Structure formats: C-alpha cells, structure tokens
Amino acid sequence: HDVTIHAGDKTIHVHGASEEFLRIIEQAKRDGIHEEELLRLIEELVK
C-alpha cells in the first residue's frame, strides 16, 4: 500500500505500508492521538 498521511503541516508518504501499519494509524486517529505523537509513531514504524 502507498499511504499519504497528513499530520498538521506535514505530509508523510509511506510506500509499501503493511496492513498492520494501516490499522495502527487508523486506530491512532480514532483514539484522537495528537498529530505530533502520530508523527513519532509513524517514524518508529517506518525505520
């Protein structure tokens, strides 16, 4: 999957995102996670 995530003034493109990655991001959004926290989460996941 190619994913584009908008968080605040940043746009992150993730190529080859796994289903698990997508679920984590969707869950985080539903939980109302702060955008900066979401960015950190994404950066950890894509290392």
Rank of each mutant, 00 (worst) to 15 (best):
His1Thr: 14
His1Pro: 10
His1Arg: 12
His1Met: 14
His1Asn: 12
His1Gln: 13
His1Cys: 13
Asp2Lys: 13
Asp2Ile: 15
Asp2Gln: 11
Asp2Arg: 12
Asp2Val: 15
Asp2Trp: 15
Asp2Phe: 15
Asp2Gly: 13
Asp2Cys: 15
Asp2Met: 15
Asp2Tyr: 15
Asp2Thr: 15
Asp2Leu: 14
Val3Trp: 04
Val3Cys: 10
Val3Asn: 04
Val3Gln: 03
Val3Ala: 05
Val3Tyr: 09
Val3Pro: 02
Val3Arg: 00
Val3His: 07
Thr4Gln: 08
Thr4Glu: 11
Thr4Trp: 07
Thr4Leu: 10
Thr4Ile: 15
Thr4Val: 15
Thr4Cys: 08
Ile5Val: 10
Ile5Asp: 02
Ile5Arg: 00
Ile5Thr: 02
Ile5Gly: 04
Ile5Ser: 02
Ile5Leu: 09
Ile5Trp: 02
His6Ser: 13
His6Gly: 06
His6Met: 13
His6Tyr: 07
His6Gln: 14
His6Glu: 12
His6Asp: 08
Ala7Lys: 03
Ala7His: 10
Ala7Tyr: 15
Ala7Ser: 08
Ala7Thr: 11
Ala7Asn: 07
Ala7Met: 14
Ala7Gln: 06
Ala7Arg: 03
Gly8Asp: 04
Gly8Ile: 05
Gly8Thr: 05
Gly8Phe: 08
Gly8Leu: 06
Gly8Cys: 05
Gly8Lys: 01
Gly8Pro: 03
Gly8Met: 05
Gly8Ser: 05
Asp9Phe: 03
Asp9His: 04
Asp9Ser: 04
Asp9Gln: 02
Asp9Trp: 02
Asp9Pro: 01
Asp9Asn: 12
Lys10Thr: 13
Lys10His: 12
Lys10Glu: 06
Lys10Gln: 10
Lys10Met: 13
Lys10Phe: 12
Lys10Trp: 10
Lys10Pro: 03
Lys10Cys: 01
Lys10Asp: 02
Thr11Ser: 08
Thr11His: 14
Thr11Glu: 11
Thr11Phe: 11
Thr11Arg: 01
Thr11Asp: 08
Thr11Val: 15
Ile12Arg: 00
Ile12Asp: 02
Ile12Asn: 02
Ile12Phe: 12
Ile12Gly: 01
Ile12Ala: 04
Ile12Cys: 03
Ile12Thr: 04
Ile12His: 04
Ile12Ser: 03
His13Cys: 07
His13Arg: 05
His13Pro: 02
Val14Asp: 02
Val14Tyr: 06
Val14Phe: 12
Val14Leu: 13
Val14Pro: 02
Val14Glu: 02
Val14Gln: 02
Val14Ser: 02
Val14Thr: 02
Val14Ala: 03
Val14Trp: 11
Val14Gly: 01
Val14Ile: 15
Val14His: 03
His15Ser: 12
His15Asn: 10
His15Phe: 11
His15Glu: 09
His15Asp: 06
His15Ala: 11
His15Gly: 05
His15Gln: 13
His15Met: 12
His15Trp: 11
Gly16Val: 10
Gly16Glu: 07
Gly16Pro: 04
Gly16Thr: 07
Gly16Ile: 10
Gly16His: 11
Gly16Ser: 09
Gly16Met: 11
Ala17Trp: 12
Ala17His: 04
Ala17Asn: 03
Ala17Pro: 07
Ala17Asp: 03
Ala17Ile: 14
Ala17Glu: 02
Ala17Phe: 14
Ala17Ser: 04
Ala17Lys: 01
Ala17Tyr: 08
Ala17Gly: 04
Ala17Cys: 09
Ser18Leu: 07
Ser18Trp: 09
Ser18Phe: 05
Ser18Thr: 15
Ser18Gln: 05
Ser18Glu: 05
Ser18Cys: 03
Ser18Lys: 04
Ser18Ile: 06
Ser18Asn: 10
Ser18Pro: 05
Glu19His: 10
Glu19Tyr: 08
Glu19Met: 09
Glu19Ile: 11
Glu19Trp: 08
Glu19Leu: 12
Glu20Leu: 07
Glu20Ser: 08
Glu20Met: 07
Glu20Pro: 01
Glu20Gln: 07
Phe21Tyr: 03
Phe21Val: 12
Phe21Trp: 13
Phe21Gln: 08
Phe21Lys: 01
Phe21Gly: 01
Phe21His: 06
Phe21Ile: 13
Phe21Arg: 00
Phe21Pro: 00
Phe21Asp: 05
Phe21Thr: 08
Leu22His: 05
Leu22Asn: 05
Leu22Pro: 00
Leu22Gln: 04
Leu22Gly: 02
Leu22Ala: 06
Leu22Trp: 12
Leu22Cys: 14
Leu22Phe: 10
Leu22Ile: 14
Leu22Glu: 06
Leu22Met: 12
Leu22Ser: 03
Arg23Ala: 14
Arg23Phe: 11
Arg23Thr: 08
Arg23Lys: 14
Arg23Tyr: 11
Arg23His: 11
Arg23Ser: 09
Ile24Arg: 10
Ile24Gly: 02
Ile24Asn: 03
Ile24Glu: 05
Ile24Gln: 10
Ile24Val: 11
Ile24Asp: 01
Ile25Arg: 00
Ile25Leu: 11
Ile25Trp: 07
Ile25Gly: 00
Ile25Gln: 00
Ile25His: 00
Ile25Tyr: 07
Ile25Thr: 01
Ile25Ala: 01
Ile25Val: 11
Ile25Asn: 00
Glu26Tyr: 06
Glu26Gly: 03
Glu26His: 06
Glu26Phe: 04
Glu26Asn: 07
Glu26Ile: 05
Glu26Leu: 09
Glu26Ala: 09
Glu26Asp: 10
Glu26Val: 02
Glu26Cys: 07
Glu26Lys: 03
Glu26Gln: 09
Gln27Tyr: 04
Gln27Asp: 10
Gln27Met: 08
Gln27Asn: 09
Gln27Ala: 12
Gln27Lys: 12
Gln27Thr: 08
Gln27Cys: 03
Gln27Ile: 07
Gln27Trp: 05
Gln27Val: 06
Gln27Phe: 03
Gln27Pro: 00
Ala28Asn: 01
Ala28Phe: 09
Ala28Gln: 01
Ala28Tyr: 10
Ala28Glu: 00
Ala28His: 03
Lys29Thr: 12
Lys29Cys: 13
Lys29His: 11
Lys29Asp: 03
Lys29Phe: 15
Lys29Pro: 00
Lys29Trp: 12
Lys29Ile: 15
Arg30Ser: 11
Arg30Leu: 14
Arg30Met: 13
Arg30Gln: 13
Arg30Ile: 11
Arg30Phe: 10
Arg30Tyr: 12
Asp31Lys: 01
Asp31Ile: 03
Asp31Pro: 01
Asp31Phe: 06
Asp31His: 06
Asp31Gln: 11
Asp31Thr: 07
Asp31Trp: 04
Asp31Tyr: 04
Asp31Arg: 01
Asp31Leu: 07
Asp31Gly: 06
Gly32Ala: 04
Gly32Cys: 02
Gly32Met: 05
Gly32Lys: 04
Gly32Trp: 01
Gly32His: 05
Gly32Asn: 08
Gly32Ile: 02
Gly32Pro: 01
Ile33Gly: 01
Ile33Phe: 10
Ile33Ala: 11
Ile33Leu: 13
Ile33Glu: 02
Ile33His: 03
Ile33Thr: 06
Ile33Asp: 01
Ile33Ser: 02
Ile33Lys: 06
His34Ala: 15
His34Ser: 15
His34Asp: 15
His34Val: 12
His34Leu: 14
His34Phe: 10
His34Trp: 09
His34Thr: 15
Glu35Ile: 14
Glu35Val: 14
Glu35Ala: 14
Glu35Asn: 12
Glu35Met: 13
Glu35Gln: 11
Glu35Ser: 14
Glu35Tyr: 14
Glu35Arg: 06
Glu35Cys: 08
Glu35Thr: 13
Glu36Ala: 13
Glu36Leu: 13
Glu36Gln: 11
Glu36Cys: 11
Glu36Asn: 10
Glu36Tyr: 10
Glu36Gly: 08
Glu36Lys: 10
Glu36Val: 12
Glu36Ile: 10
Glu36Trp: 11
Glu37Asp: 13
Glu37Val: 08
Glu37Met: 08
Glu37Gly: 08
Glu37Ile: 06
Glu37Arg: 04
Glu37Thr: 06
Glu37His: 07
Glu37Asn: 06
Glu37Phe: 04
Leu38Ala: 00
Leu38Val: 02
Leu38Asn: 00
Leu38Lys: 00
Leu38Gln: 00
Leu38Gly: 00
Leu38Thr: 01
Leu38His: 00
Leu38Arg: 00
Leu39Ile: 14
Leu39Tyr: 12
Leu39Ala: 08
Leu39Gly: 02
Leu39Cys: 08
Leu39Ser: 04
Leu39Trp: 14
Leu39Met: 12
Leu39Arg: 05
Leu39His: 04
Arg40Ala: 14
Arg40Ile: 10
Arg40Thr: 09
Arg40Asn: 09
Arg40Trp: 09
Arg40Gln: 11
Arg40His: 10
Arg40Glu: 09
Leu41Val: 03
Leu41Ser: 00
Leu41Glu: 00
Leu41Ala: 01
Leu41Thr: 01
Leu41Gln: 01
Leu41Phe: 07
Ile42Val: 13
Ile42Gln: 00
Ile42His: 00
Ile42Ser: 00
Ile42Cys: 03
Ile42Arg: 00
Ile42Met: 03
Ile42Lys: 00
Ile42Ala: 02
Ile42Phe: 13
Ile42Trp: 08
Glu43Pro: 00
Glu43Lys: 07
Glu43Thr: 08
Glu43Ser: 06
Glu43Met: 13
Glu43Asp: 12
Glu43Leu: 14
Glu43Tyr: 13
Glu43Trp: 13
Glu43Gln: 10
Glu43Asn: 08
Glu43Gly: 05
Glu44Met: 09
Glu44Leu: 10
Glu44Gln: 10
Glu44Asp: 11
Glu44Cys: 06
Glu44Ala: 10
Glu44Tyr: 12
Glu44Thr: 07
Glu44Trp: 13
Leu45His: 10
Leu45Asn: 02
Leu45Gln: 04
Leu45Met: 13
Leu45Ile: 07
Leu45Arg: 01
Leu45Phe: 15
Leu45Gly: 01
Leu45Cys: 03
Leu45Ala: 05
Leu45Asp: 01
Leu45Thr: 02
Leu45Val: 04
Val46Arg: 06
Val46Ile: 15
Val46Asn: 07
Val46Tyr: 10
Val46Phe: 13
Val46Met: 15
Val46Cys: 09
Val46Thr: 10
Val46Gln: 10
Val46Gly: 07
Val46His: 07
Lys47His: 13
Lys47Asp: 10
Lys47Ile: 14
Lys47Ala: 14
Lys47Thr: 14
Lys47Trp: 12
Lys47Tyr: 13
